[in-house]
């Protein structure tokens, strides 16, 4: 199924929970969805007979400029029908909350932990949301564009990144 048709299907089903469809400026046509509806949309994408998106290839956090909202990007793939769709959702910088899909796609478990670790995005309903790559007591979320590294970590000087 083409991404356009998937978008039509989704917006018919979910109405205003689907915000828009982006085709320009991206090589993976993207459906932008509301963060609070993410789990039900993914459930539908996975269980629907026509869609069968059984595999989450990638989940990435993203911070565009250090001021606007954070975003999370989901790349889905269907191993049986072999089609793709990209979902994108925005979360406000101060209270970045997105519904977790770790129980739908187990891949998301670690990837969400990584996005939490590096962007501080809170995935609601995640079974065990804690840092995965950085130390548990690390301060701040390093991949945010406005991140400023602390001077010391446990008494060790942190080298400055320009």
């Amino acid at each position: 199924m083409k991404e356009q048709e998937i978008y039509a299907d989704l917006s018919a089903k979910f109405g205003d929970k689907i915000i828009e469809f982006v085709e320009e400026e991206t090589l993976n046509p993207t459906v932008i969805v509301k963060p609070a509806a993410l789990d039900e949309i993914c459930n539908y994408l996975k269980d629907s007979e026509d869609l069968q998106f059984d595999s989450l290839m990638n989940l990435a956090g993203h911070d565009a400029d250090g001021e606007s909202d954070l975003s999370v990007i989901y790349h889905l793939y269907s191993t049986s029908i072999k089609h793709y769709i990209t979902l994108k959702t925005f979360a406000s910088r101060d209270t970045p909350a997105v519904k977790s899909i770790a129980k739908i796609y187990r891949t998301a478990d670690w990837h969400e932990r990584e996005a939490y670790d590096l962007y501080g995005i809170i995935f609601e309903g995640h079974p065990d949301l804690k840092r995965i790559l950085m130390e548990e007591d690390w301060e701040g979320y390093p991949l945010r564009k406005d991140y400023v590294a602390a001077e010391f970590y446990r008494g060790m000087r942190i080298e400055k990144v320009k």
Binding site: E25, T26, L27, N28, M57, N58, I73, H75, T86
Partner: peptide, 8 residues
């Protein structure tokens, strides 16, 4: 150019 890609 401005844009994004997921390439596997």
């Amino acid at each position: 150019p401005k844009g994004e890609i997921y390439f596997r």
